[in-house]
């Protein structure tokens, strides 16, 4: 069984691009369009990694990180933030919420896979 990665982004274009990169590298990919949907998708799943955007409707990525960290089964799951946000204050919020790393868009597939393999 391959490792499963949940990607969370409100842009379907972006989900497709991230999904393509990960599937090519042999990962199973689950998708969600916002934080709330991500929590539903994550329920009962064995996730190796979560990759989330920040700015999303209904529930943003920082809140999603906090909510996942509050659940025992995701306390130690690596969570990468993949966003257009590059401000230090926003990064700090992500770090405090419990994110594992921060990647600023646009991403290069090689770099994304490199980071993914580092945190897995």
């Amino acid at each position: 069984m391959g490792k499963t990665i949940l990607t969370v982004d409100d842009s379907s274009t972006m989900r497709q691009m991230i999904g393509f990169t990960l599937k090519e590298a042999g990962f199973e990919v689950l998708e969600a369009g916002d934080g709330l949907e991500a929590l539903e998708r994550a329920r009962g799943q064995k996730l190796s990694l979560v990759i989330t955007d920040v700015n999303m409707p209904r529930m943003d990525g920082i809140t999603l990180v906090q909510r996942l960290r509050a659940q025992p089964e995701f306390r130690f799951t690596p969570i990468l933030v993949l966003t257009t946000e590059s401000g230090l204050d926003m990064k700090q919020k992500g770090k405090e919420a419990g994110a594992t790393g921060w990647i600023v868009k646009p991403f290069s597939p090689e770099k994304l896979l490199d980071v993914v393999n580092k945190v897995l």
């Binding site: 842009s11 274009t13 972006m14 691009m17 393509f20 700015n55 257009t84 946000e85 868009k105 646009p106 991403f107 290069s108 597939p109």
Partner: peptide
């Protein structure tokens, strides 16, 4: 793929600012 990611990011910067 780089091109498409670049374009998608250019759109997203604007969209995020509008949402803000």
């Amino acid at each position: 793929f780089f091109a498409a990611r670049y374009g998608a990011a250019a759109m997203e910067y604007l969209i995020n600012e509008l949402l803000r």
